[in-house]
Amino acid sequence: MAFQRCALPLLLLLAAAASHAQTFRVGKEAGLPVSQTVTVESDADFENFTGITHGVSGVIRIDPAKKTGSGRLEIDVASIDTGVPLRNEHMRSAQWLDTDKYPTAVFETTSVRHKSGDTYTVTGRLTFRGVTRTITTDVNARLIKESAQSRAARFRGDVVRVRGQFRLRLSDYGVRIPDIAKGKVAEIVTIRFDVFGQTG
C-alpha cells in the first residue's frame, strides 16, 4: 500500500520529466492580449469575399525538444463576418453553414511532424457542419520564451504563434451551392489562421 502511495507520484514525475510538452491556451478565456484571426476566402467570378472571425479557443501542446506537438482548436463559425450584414445572415442559414445547429468547427490534430525551421506538417480531423474529414497542411509555429519583453507585452508565460492555411471543398461538408449563387460563392474556399497561445 505504501509502495502504491509512493509509486503513483513517482510515475507522474517520470512522465512529466520524459515529456517536455508545454500547453498553450488559446482564446479569450486564456486572457491573451491579442485576438486570434481565422479567415475564409471565397474566390468567385463576382468577387473574392473574405469572412473573418476572432472566435478561436482551445489548446496547443508543443514539445520543443522532440519537435512535435498536438492541439485542439474550436472556431466560432457563427461569428464569421464577411463585411456585408445580409450576406452574413444568408451564410448562417440552414442552407449554408447552419450555425444554429453547428455553431462551431473543431480541428484536432492526429500527427505533427517537424519539417524545417519553424515549419511543421500537421494532420488532423476537421469537424464542420457535422462532417469530419482529415486535413494535412504545413503550419508555421513560432515559440517565444517568457521574457521581460513578453511580460511587457502583457503575455503570461511562454507564447506561441501558429499560422497556416488550407483549402476545403464546401460540398465535402454538405454545403450545396444553389445555381443562383454559383458566380458569387466558390466551391473551394481557403482558410487561413493566425492564432496565439500562452502557457501562463
Binding site: P33, V34, T37, T39, E41, D43, N48, F49, T50, I52, R142, I144, Q149, S150, A152, A153, R154, F155, V159, R161, T190, R192, D194, F196
Partner: peptide, 25 residues
C-alpha cells in the same frame, strides 16, 4: 492586399508583419 496590422503587443514580440485578409486583389 487587405491586412490586419498587429497591435503594439504583438509587434513588440513578433515584429510588425501584418496578418493578410484574403489574397491580393
Amino acid at each position: 492586399q487587405r491586412v490586419m496590422t498587429p497591435n503594439a503587443d504583438v509587434e513588440a514580440l513578433f515584429g510588425g508583419e501584418p496578418t493578410p485578409i484574403g489574397s491580393p486583389q
